[in-house]
Computed example of a mutant assay.
Amino acid sequence: MEFMAQANKKFGIRALLLQGLTFLNVLTSAFMIWKGLSLFTNSESPVVVVLSGSMEPAYYRGDILFLHNGYSPVDIGEVVVYKLKDKPIPIVHRVLKVHTEAETGKQYLLTKGDNNNADDRGLYNPGQLWISREDIIGRVKGFVPYAGMGTIWMNDYPQLKMGLLGTLCVLSLFGNE
């Protein structure tokens, strides 16, 4: 009888270790897929969710955008995602004007949300009139409407995020393989 109790205890530890390894496998696989997409698209963030209504009617809140950051010059009318220094959230807006330095070929861009009345100079850092090509993290190449609403709901309602995480933890602890 004592042998059976030890066997059950040992099997429980093995099952727990197996679940932990499976969880780590899922995390590392997701990380490798993300990094592979980042390399392929030349973008630190190849997929983003539209968080505001500033680009309506082209893109709505909750749309998932697929980005690519090629080396060709940016054109007027392209929708780009840019991130400014000291600002944590990237912005999705359309290129309104392009200024290219003749000597260096370096591009400077002025952007604006389709649904905004004014250009983005009010969003740029103080004293900044243009964003540089280096601020661009990607150009929009495709989108899936409203597929990112879950992300928005979890940001808008933190208790939903905590409930979902708690449920996943409970399911992983008590679920079968």
Rank of each mutant, 00 (worst) to 15 (best):
M154R: 13
Y157I: 08
F174R: 07
K35P: 06
T28N: 07
S52D: 08
A147K: 00
G62V: 03
A102H: 10
H99C: 04
S43I: 06
V80P: 00
V98I: 01
Q19F: 06
M32P: 03
L110M: 12
D63F: 04
D114W: 05
E78R: 01
G148Q: 00
S72P: 03
S38R: 08
M149W: 12
L84R: 02
A118Q: 12
G36Y: 07
P57A: 07
Q128I: 03
F40A: 14
W153M: 15
L51F: 07
V98N: 00
D156Y: 10
L168T: 05
L17F: 13
N125F: 04
V48D: 12
T41E: 06
S43H: 11
V74I: 15
E56H: 09
I137L: 09
R14L: 13
S38N: 07
Y146P: 00
V92R: 09
K161D: 15
R133I: 00
K161Y: 12
L18R: 13
D135K: 02
V170C: 11
D156C: 07
H93W: 05
K35F: 14
Q159I: 14
N25M: 13
P88C: 05
T167N: 07
G36M: 14
I136V: 15
V92S: 14
S52N: 05
S38C: 08
A147S: 07
K141M: 11
S45K: 14
V95Q: 00
V49A: 06
N125Q: 11
G53Q: 09
L165T: 05
M149G: 03
L96R: 13
E78C: 01
L123V: 12
V98F: 00
V80R: 01
Y71C: 07
I131V: 08
F23W: 13
H68C: 09
V47Y: 04
A7K: 12
F31M: 05
H68V: 09
T167S: 13
T28G: 05
Y59W: 06
V81T: 14
C169M: 15
V144R: 02
W153D: 15
F143C: 06
N42W: 05
V144C: 03
A15C: 08
V98H: 00
M162Y: 13
M154K: 13
N176L: 08
I91P: 08
G127M: 03
G62S: 04
I64A: 12
D75P: 03
L164N: 12
F174K: 06
L37V: 11
G77Q: 03
F11C: 07
M1T: 11
V74D: 01
G12K: 15
T167Q: 09
L96G: 02
L165R: 08
I136D: 00
V80A: 03
S132D: 12
Y82E: 00
L37M: 15
L24F: 13
W153N: 10
L168V: 11
I91Q: 10
H68G: 06
P46G: 11
V170N: 06
A7P: 03
L27N: 09
N42Y: 08
I131E: 00
G138R: 02
S38L: 05
Q159P: 05
